[in-house]
């Protein structure tokens, strides 16, 4: 297991290099540059700016410069947030995203697995339809509808919670963002759990367990859940990454200083260093999460050996 983990970490380096290369050149191929805007700059000033950011060099030279810089831990300045470096932005944004993301994913797992399991046990009952129907509204309503709707109801009409803002991380400010982030994931987790639980409950080893006269609750919790959770585990890696980095809508609507907005805004603003920094960070995050998921998978399913 340790050797496997080490090997996976080792193989992350070429993966990262590949991603850096693709992202770097894709970004540069995209039309429009970081300093194109409504007010066109006089050519001399544009030249000054490009020189100041080393953007006047050939692209391949910029690429190698970049590689050398990141090896020294220098991810460069942002072109949009001129007073901050990329490292500043990521180190201030990520803890916020992580806090929200982890809370949302935990909420999604607890509620989703619970609802999915119950629905699977009472397959095709009214209860099943009710649980799955409710879970589905989480998927059926896009988060850019859900977020303003919650803000309108709980922030404006009822005044229970602040409409937006981060408030230094006070819990009241996190409630709506976490719920909005978790809702679609709850639905996905519930559906995946239900699907695989139905399958597992009909499989031979559960029949055997039942035939042995085991208590139904023990069958479900000890045996079925372990197998039934496999697809959910598979799903969690990408889901976590998606929640942490893909929360751009929630961040924009609830005005949260997370990392998601840098990513999309960076791409739209051609803020090359920010995009590259976030891409690298994101890739590292996913590589780690995938490794963790694989290890958990191997742990839960003895039939899969991590070799």
């Amino acid at each position: 297991m340790l050797a496997y983990t080490l090997r996976r970490i080792g193989s992350a380096i070429p993966t990262l290099l590949f991603i850096i290369t693709i992202a770097f050149f894709m970004m540069r191929l995209a039309p429009g540059g970081p300093f194109d805007r409504e007010r066109q700059l006089p050519p001399e000033i544009e030249a000054n700016i490009l020189r100041a950011y080393n953007l006047d060099k050939p692209v391949y030279e910029q690429y190698f410069d970049y590689l050398i810089n990141i090896m020294h831990g220098d991810f460069g300045p942002s072109y949009k947030y001129l007073d901050f470096t990329v490292t500043d932005l990521i180190t201030t944004g990520f803890p916020v995203s992580l806090r929200l993301g982890m809370s949302a994913i935990l909420l999604a797992i607890f509620v989703g697995v619970f609802a999915g399991t119950i629905a699977a046990l009472k397959q095709n009952s009214v209860f099943d339809y009710m649980v799955m129907g409710t879970a589905m509204t989480g998927i059926a309503i896009p988060n850019f509808v859900m977020a303003p709707l919650l803000a309108l109801i709980f922030g404006v009409y009822l005044s229970w919670l602040p409409v937006a803002g981060w408030g230094g991380g006070a819990i009241a400010y996190q409630v709506m963002p976490i719920i909005t982030l978790a809702l679609p994931q709850i639905a996905y987790v519930a559906r995946l759990t239900r699907g695989s639980m139905v399958e597992t409950m009909n499989s031979n080893f559960i029949r055997t367990a039942r035939a042995k006269g085991l208590n139904e609750r023990i069958v479900v919790i000890r045996h079925a859940l372990k197998g039934g959770l496999l697809p959910v585990i598979s799903y969690l890696g990408p889901a976590t990454a998606e929640i942490i980095t893909g929360s751009v809508v929630i961040e924009a609507i609830f005005d949260i200083p997370g990392i998601g907005r840098y990513f999309v805004n960076g791409a739209l603003n051609r803020d090359y260093p920010v995009v590259m920094g976030v891409v690298i960070f994101f890739a590292l995050l996913i590589i780690t999460l995938n490794l963790v998921v694989d290890l958990i998978y191997g742990f839960l399913d003895p039939r899969v050996k991590v070799e």
Binding site: I19, A23, M26, F263, A267, V279, A283, N290
Partner: peptide
Amino acid sequence: YSLPFMFF
């Protein structure tokens, strides 16, 4: 997978 899909 590690290539952020939205960016892509």
